[in-house]
């Protein structure tokens, strides 16, 4: 993890789109194939980690991550309450698939924010 390793930063910049594609594939197909919100979110947070490996500068604002994570948590609590407790899943059974996809996306974003917060906090702030 040298600070100015050209090989690593170039390789990482090449890998960015593929990591994003793979993460979204895992999230969006989580309800039929292996994977899901948590795994896809961990992969999404790998984007920020590889960014640190390439360019180790502290220019990400952790406050936004925290706000997004809290909003996602509240939405994740509210949507099942509306959808499942009112019996909407039996009335409109065609909505079930979209419900799973939506929940996977929300969980993915929340996990991504959480793991990125842990990582950046650990890398840039915590010390002896």
């Amino acid at each position: 993890m040298n600070k100015d390793s050209e090989i690593i930063s170039n390789t990482v910049s090449l890998l960015y789109p593929f990591i994003i594609l793979f993460a979204f594939y895992i999230i969006l197909n989580g309800h039929i194939t292996p994977g899901g919100g948590f795994q896809g979110g961990a992969l999404l947070s790998a984007i920020f980690i590889t960014k640190y490996m390439g360019i180790p500068t502290n220019d990400t604002d952790l406050k936004n991550f925290k706000i997004i994570e809290k909003i996602m948590f509240i939405i994740i609590m509210i949507i099942p309450m509306i959808f499942l407790f009112n019996g909407l899943n039996k009335k409109f059974s065609f909505l079930n698939e979209y419900y799973l996809i939506l929940m996977n996306i929300l969980i993915g974003i929340k996990v991504c924010c959480g793991l990125s917060i842990i990582f950046f906090r650990f890398v840039f702030y915590e010390s002896r």
């Binding site: 895992i26 292996p34 994977g35 948590f38 795994q39 961990a42 992969l43 947070s45 790998a46 980690i49 793991l115 990582f119």
Partner: peptide, 10 residues
């Protein structure tokens, strides 16, 4: 998948 992402990378 979870083990590979979290255990061996993160």
């Amino acid at each position: 998948i979870a083990q590979a992402v979290i255990g061996s990378t993160l």
